[in-house]
Design a protein around this nucleic acid. Structure first.
Length: 452
DNA sequence: AAGTATTTCAACCGCGAATTA
DNA sequence: CTAATTCGCGGTTGAAATACT
């Protein structure tokens, strides 16, 4: 060892004569020159050898967070922010892990962006529901439900990693005060449907679907409202869902017309995602008249297997569907799948169907909730869902602008990554933009548009 | 224009993990 | 195996910048 006499922890920066505070350009130059020449080696020894009146820790911090040549300066792109949000969902405050997924960004910078921008933004959007008593109708006896992602989520993860039986941190440990008005209702509700006279969800039809059973209707956590799904895939690019009651919902035709643009229907799955009946939908797979291609499979792979998939379209072949289900680890007990009649016809030949909507009725609600929240901390739609409907009225911004965005950044096969530089968000628009950012473009749209 | 409040972000601190002797 | 040491992480701070009154 070094032979120093200090027992225990060696003080770092409080030794006499060591400078603290902001670095000067001269100090930066000394540090850069030294590391370029010798590498950093032992950080503790570095300042002495380089001639800096700093402690090694300060040098390391300055280098890794600021002077490193591969540091990317400047504002975060929307894509980067999207990545942070998504990773934070899964990882919590593991900033260095998140940073490893964002080349050129440091953990410190990401932490700052999260704390100063993203957290507030999500809070404003209602994504932070907070824990405990007043933020949602969480069932008694389910302390970690719903699994929202906020400062507490990390605690949940940590506990689940190592101390699975420990309860998550209490509400008081959350550093995000959540008011009733901005985080009102995290209602984990399921996409349970019992299509009348059918066992499938046919999104090609104009139809009403009711929540699954009286069993659920009796639960305060499940609404008895009906859900209307329509116009899903006539041309493969329109998925809509609205609550039939309790909302100002445009009529079918009115809504359909409103999303037409140059005779072309525009993807609008945001509304579907907004539905109270879908608790973790991350992907709507619509063949759009095309076959499933590899990019679709690749697209859904990273999401894990706990979210809902709405599969619909006319042209899913047997092999394609089989591949899809296998990729998604879906078997006959795949309550996360919804599908239309065409898919059902195909699927029925696969011995993989029907899924377990009916079986789910037999399962206790608590069990379902537990299994759902075990799979992941919080899924995208749960995150988005708490947005108060009154605060995100779709008519509060220019529909034209929104369609411009979807056309330009999704329909034309581009990644929806960055807003046009001259684009001004109007009130309410950020909700939609962020929602799109969360979901990303559907891959088929890219191939569909490039084919045409 | 001046004073005050809020936001931002680079830097610090303490802790735990990993490494070394 | 143990203890010292180093490293890296995440939470926090506080000065500077910016926004608001």
């Amino acid at each position: 060892m070094s032979g120093e006499n200090n027992m225990g922890r060696t003080p770092c920066c409080d030794e006499m004569g060591l400078k603290k505070g902001p670095w000067t350009p001269e100090e930066d130059k000394i540090l850069i020159d030294y590391i370029k020449k010798h590498g950093h080696g032992n950080w503790r020894a570095l300042p002495k050898q380089a001639g800096l009146m700093r402690c090694g820790k300060s040098c390391r911090l300055r280098w890794t967070n600021y002077l490193r040549p591969d540091i990317k300066r400047g504002n975060f792109s929307l894509k980067e922010e999207q990545t942070i949000i998504q990773l934070h969902q899964v990882l919590g405050n593991r900033w260095s892990t998140i940073a490893s997924r964002l080349p050129g960004r440091t953990d410190n910078e990401i932490k700052n962006v999260w704390n100063t921008h993203l957290k507030k933004r999500l809070l404003h959007m209602g994504a932070f529901a907070g824990h405990g008593h007043n933020s949602c109708n969480a069932p008694a006896g389910s302390p970690d439900w719903p699994p929202v992602q906020n400062a507490c989520t990390e605690d949940i993860h940590r506990h689940s990693d190592s101390e699975a039986n420990e309860p998550p941190a209490k509400t008081e440990s959350c550093d995000v005060p959540v008011s009733e008005e901005i985080a009102p209702k995290v209602c984990k509700q399921r996409l349970e449907y019992l299509p009348e006279g059918n066992s499938c969800l046919d999104t090609d039809q104009d139809a009403y679907y009711t929540p699954l059973s009286p069993h659920y209707n009796n639960s305060p956590k499940f609404s008895a409202e009906k859900i209307e799904l329509f116009n899903s895939s006539a041309h493969g690019v329109c998925n809509q869902a609205q609550l039939v009651s309790g909302d100002k919902v445009p009529s079918h035709s009115e809504s359909t017309e409103s999303i037409k643009r140059d005779g072309k229907k525009v993807l609008d799955y945001t509304t579907l995602l907004q539905s109270n009946y879908i608790d973790s939908l991350k992907l709507i797979m619509d063949d759009g008249g095309l076959s499933i291609d590899e990019s679709q499979i690749e697209y859904i792979k990273p999401f894990g297997s706990d979210e809902k998939i709405l599969v619909e379209g006319h042209d899913f072949g047997e092999e394609e569907l089989k591949a899809l289900l296998q990729q998604y680890n879906c078997t006959s007990d795949a309550p996360n799948l919804a599908y239309n009649s065409n898919v059902l016809d195909t699927a029925s030949t696969l011995s993989m169907w029907p899924p377990t909507q009916h079986a789910a009725m037999e399962t206790s609600l608590d069990d379902q909730l537990a299994s759902s929240s075990n799979a992941n901390s919080c899924t995208m739609t749960q995150m988005m869902e708490p947005i108060g409907r009154e605060s995100c009225n779709p008519t509060s911004f220019s529909v034209e602008q929104f369609l411009d965005l979807t056309d330009n950044y999704t329909m034309e096969g581009k990644q929806f990554q960055e807003l046009p530089p001259d684009f001004q968000l109007q009130d309410g628009m950020d909700y939609w933009v962020n929602l799109l950012m969360q979901v990303g473009p559907l891959p088929y749209l890219q191939s569909a548009s490039s084919d045409k």
